[in-house]
Write a protein that binds this DNA or RNA. Structure first.
Length: 289
DNA sequence: ACACTAACCTGCAAGC
DNA sequence: TGCTTGCAGGTTAGTG
């Protein structure tokens, strides 16, 4: 009995700790900023692939191609991290459970550490991904994964007018609509849920039944929420050296995500939960119409 | 073109 | 204690 209570307590505590991998766009951006100072400008001395079976197989020749190349620049497009090398680029995605950290080459391998890129400064970039939904892809040309992506949410190419235009003749629910990468990138389940709550829009409302004015509010809130999360990521006391490399969400308050059945923070009404496109959605039946 | 589903994979928590 | 079940933040391939 005592043991049972104790383990419940531990479980509860762990639910509040920032240790879960959560790569949505702000986490990818935070990861990029965290690793860039150690990686940019370095030469790749070796690349070790222990588990090539990711979202797409890591090709055999990637080690030979990478070795000796200089990492000229790191950048991000959607949730992809791009390592610009001399003769092409490496496209990295963290999937649902991936993380990157700066390690020492001598460090012991943890379970699910799949790839290590050794650098000329004596450090290494290590990739960890339990579910293996991520990817490491090499291409000398443009990556086809990037070709049909919509605008970056934090850029001027994304606004309410564009969102409204794209929504005409789209009868699917607004939540999966804003999660569609061809419409706008980087809006995952958490931030879609939060942005719709802040905008007072029901997640299951048809995309073509929403006014331009409301799309302007929604696009503004998407920008705001993502920017806040990135800012939080930058202020967290997490570094990417010898850590687990997972930025997490701690300090960021989520208003509705994961709070189904609990009271709305604005009005106290019990939050409802529904399934849209296989993803759970939480909303306030009173605040969101 | 669009809407919707299943699938990739492991870990965790809840229920029996 | 050990099963089984369902669920998890992403994205694509396949169906109608």
């Amino acid at each position: 009995m005592i043991h049972l209570c104790y383990s419940r307590f531990i479980t509860t505590v762990f639910n509040y700790l920032p240790i879960k991998p959560m790569p949505e766009l702000p986490e990818v951006e935070t990861t990029l900023r965290g690793i860039a100072p150690f990686v940019e400008g370095q030469n790749i001395t070796a690349l070790t692939v222990r588990q090539p079976s990711l979202r797409w197989p890591v090709t055999d020749n990637i080690q030979a191609i990478a070795r000796g190349q200089k990492i000229e620049q790191l950048s991000r497009r959607a949730k992809y991290i791009i390592l610009q090398l001399e003769s092409g680029s490496m496209l990295i995605h963290l999937g649902m459970s991936g993380s990157l950290r700066i390690s020492n080459p001598s460090e012991t391998w943890r379970k699910h550490d799949h790839i290590e890129m050794q650098l000329s400064n004596g450090r290494a970039l290590r990739y960890h991904d339990p579910r293996r939904f991520g990817c490491w892809l090499w291409s000398a040309e443009d990556h086809h994964q990037l070709k049909k992506l919509g605008p970056e949410p934090l850029s001027n190419n994304f606004d309410g007018d564009g969102l409204f235009q794209a929504s005409r003749n789209r009868k699917l629910a607004v939540k999966p609509f804003i999660m569609t990468n061809a419409v706008v990138v980087g809006v995952g389940n958490i931030y879609a849920t939060e942005a719709l709550f802040r905008s007072g829009i029901r997640p299951n409302r048809a995309a073509n039944k929403i006014s331009k004015q409301r799309y302007q509010i929604l696009s503004g809130n998407i920008k705001e929420i993502l920017a806040e999360a990135i800012k939080q990521g930058g202020t967290t006391l997490r570094d990417f050296v010898n850590s687990d490399g997972q930025p997490g969400y701690f300090q960021q308050s989520l208003d509705v995500y994961g709070r189904g059945g609990e009271p709305c923070k604005k009005c106290g009404t019990t939050l409802k939960e529904l399934k849209l496109g296989q993803r759970s959605s939480v909303y306030c039946p009173s605040c969101q119409t």
